[in-house]
């Protein structure tokens, strides 16, 4: 990973009146009608196109928004009406696909799951929203990062059911209590909010990171699975669970409400006491 292409790299905040792009050179013709009750939000976005730019910069846009709008609506407004080069991933727009993880006002969130009204601190007085790419993964373009290292860590923990016995003709029997044991970690959508909120991951990219451990947990504690030890061995590695410093950033960041730190602790405990 090259430092200059990483969102964690520092960049100067060079937003100034002269570079404010609102309805300026980047604007694309007439603007759509402003809905009743809209307020004007300053959306400050960290821009970086590795195809043309040497370093990242900040750019601000004035966007009309309803308090119930999602941050994703603001980004679409910029892309569709102000600057078509603004680049980010998104798909489902309601917090299920995990495409639009980004750093919003300094914390990792899905842009489609944060409403404008929840970001207006000081009784609605603060109307600037800052958006950066998630940290710790190389930036390709604006808010779009290279997800490959993240998925590589996921794949490394054998994230699939392993069972060496003969397959039954019907379904495997599993009690509701055994099913409940790993319910929380089945909710993961692989958005990377947790992993890229982890200070250890920012400095040690080789650390598996919370998401990979969550997905290992999902199988380690599944009564139908027989490879808990294989996965625990993998996570006992120098880049495994022991890197975790229980800062709880991951739990706070998870848009699915998974108790990520707790899951990591359960894996640590399974390693210490050799039982699942």
């Amino acid at each position: 990973m090259t430092a200059s292409a990483t969102s964690a790299a520092s960049a100067q905040d060079n937003t100034s009146a002269g570079q404010d792009k609102t309805n300026a050179a980047g604007s694309r013709g007439s603007q759509p009608p402003v809905p009743e009750g809209a307020i004007t939000i300053t959306v400050k976005i960290r821009r970086f196109n590795t195809e043309f730019d040497d370093e990242p910069r900040w750019e601000s846009f004035q966007v009309p928004a309803l308090p119930t709008d999602r941050v994703l609506n603001l980004l679409h407004h910029v892309k569709w009406y102000l600057d078509g080069t603004l680049t980010f991933r998104r798909s489902c727009a309601h917090g299920i696909c995990g495409s639009d993880a980004m750093r919003i006002n300094g914390v990792n969130r899905l842009a489609c799951k944060v409403l404008v009204k929840d970001l207006l601190a000081g009784g609605g007085k603060a109307t600037t929203i800052t958006i950066e790419p998630i940290k710790g993964l190389p930036v390709h373009k604006d808010l779009l990062v290279d997800m490959e290292p993240f998925f590589e860590a996921f794949r490394a923990v054998k994230p699939y059911l392993i069972n060496y016995g003969q397959e039954p003709t019907r379904e495997r029997i599993q009690s509701a209590a055994d099913r409940e044991r790993f319910d929380d970690t089945t909710k993961c959508i692989l958005c990377a909010c947790c992993t890229t909120s982890c200070p250890v991951y920012w400095t040690e990219g080789s650390y598996f990171g919370p998401a990979a451990i969550v997905n290992a947990h999902r199988f380690i504690f599944d009564s139908r699975d027989e490879a808990a030890e294989e996965r625990l061995d993998i996570l006992n590695d120098v880049d495994g669970v022991w890197r975790c410093r229980t800062t709880f950033n991951c739990t706070d960041a998870c848009p699915r409400g998974i108790q990520v730190t707790k899951a990591i602790q359960e894996v640590k405990r399974a390693l210490l006491f050799k039982r699942v």
């Binding site: 059911l161 379904e171 495997r172 029997i173 599993q174 009690s175 509701a176 099913r179 790993f182 599944d222």
Partner: peptide, 20 residues
């Protein structure tokens, strides 16, 4: 199709007897 998914690891909700 359902049984295949269960064997692949899909965590279906269970009945009190542990069936899907």
């Amino acid at each position: 199709a359902v049984l295949d998914l269960e064997k692949m690891g899909l965590p279906f909700n269970r009945t009190p007897e542990g069936k899907i």
